[in-house]
Design a protein around this nucleic acid. Sequence first.
DNA 1: ATTCGATGTGAACCGTGGTTCAGTATCTTG
DNA 2: CAAGATACTGAACCACGGTTCACATCGAAT
Lengths: 216, 216
Amino acid sequence: MAYRRTDNVAARLADNRRAILNAARDLVAEGGFAAAQMTEVARKAGVATGTLYRYFPSKEELCRQVFREVSAREMNVLAGIAAGKETATARLNEVLRTFAGRAVRGRRLAYALLAEPVDVGLAEERARFRRMHGEIFSGILSDGVAAGEFPPLDVRIAAACIAGAIPTALIGPLAPESHELEEKGDSVIEEIVRFCLAGVEGAGAKKKMSEQRRSA
Amino acid sequence: MAYRRTDNVAARLADNRRAILNAARDLVAEGGFAAAQMTEVARKAGVATGTLYRYFPSKEELCRQVFREVSAREMNVLAGIAAGKETATARLNEVLRTFAGRAVRGRRLAYALLAEPVDVGLAEERARFRRMHGEIFSGILSDGVAAGEFPPLDVRIAAACIAGAIPTALIGPLAPESHELEEKGDSVIEEIVRFCLAGVEGAGAKKKMSEQRRSA
DNA sequence: ATTCGATGTGAACCGTGGTTCAGTATCTTG
DNA sequence: CAAGATACTGAACCACGGTTCACATCGAAT
């Protein structure tokens, strides 16, 4: 008679899968995707390298899965705030603060998700992730424009500016030193958020000015 | 008697060196640093792969040299504007416009310099490049603050925000489609510049507000 | 013309790290 | 418990692209 996968086995398989994903996730959180080598993942998960390929067709797929899980958590946090009932200004404020705050606290992870050099497969996932950021920001922005809280502005572009400004100011060569972020990270975040909000709120005034100039 | 390198030969060597660098540069401009494989560079330069190693100790060194030459050109353009005698506002405006404009026109190159995944050696060069951007921006900003054109602000952070916003809004997953940039690139640039200027000019007002709030 | 160092050549080499697969252990069914 | 299927193992394999090196060629000095 045909072989049937027993509940017990199914559970073990699921456990293994989780163990592998967790091992990979931990390695990524520590040393970025560069540190997630198949041999290492296997070792950390307590299985043989060959076993990895019973659960994932390739390293790329495994890494994508990890990326999706980790980034989904981040997105959910932001999406929750964005969906709130407060004014657009308040939601934008909180979303920016949260985004920046989490990036500072989980710097290594933020680096892996946003800035680390990765190959095409992961770059695709990252693109999706960033586009979702864009959508969250631009959603709030168009709410704000509709409500008259913000001056009319190209929400796509403003969202992209925000999505670029925050990571650059917190991660990478233009960011403050790590220890500096440690002690006065909050004021740094404060300043970044301020810049972005001003960019949004001032944009319309500017725009009107240039329109006036143009139509004069 | 000792062998002496004749002028003729020296010239040929220099020519070869240039040919190699140009070949590499062209490949990078077309397909990023990923496309600059030693075999390809050699083919395009019209020499054997082994010859490359008579002129450069390693691929990394060759690529660094290319990066330096290309990025130096960009920096010089910006530095020239930054050093001008106009008001900080005017210079900031022009620097941003120029930066964005060149990024749009030379999208592939901009991608290679700013966003393409590269390995550690080049990442170092890129870090230098981006820090120079930061310095140019923050230089103008502190001029503006000193002159009272801009409200008091943390110029480092504002500079980082600008340096992040512009490329993100023009290159990568959050940027408009390429054809879109083709037709209405100028208005996109306009909007980005506006956002950044507003971020700078509005920052102080905000800051004062929060200071008031804090001291209240 | 000859000699010898400098320069050029490109096929072979090698390190890295993902992937495979023949062999073994474990599980399910009758 | 035997038999067949599934799951696990890890050493060997392979692709890729940078690097080397034994050999050929060229140019300078005598």
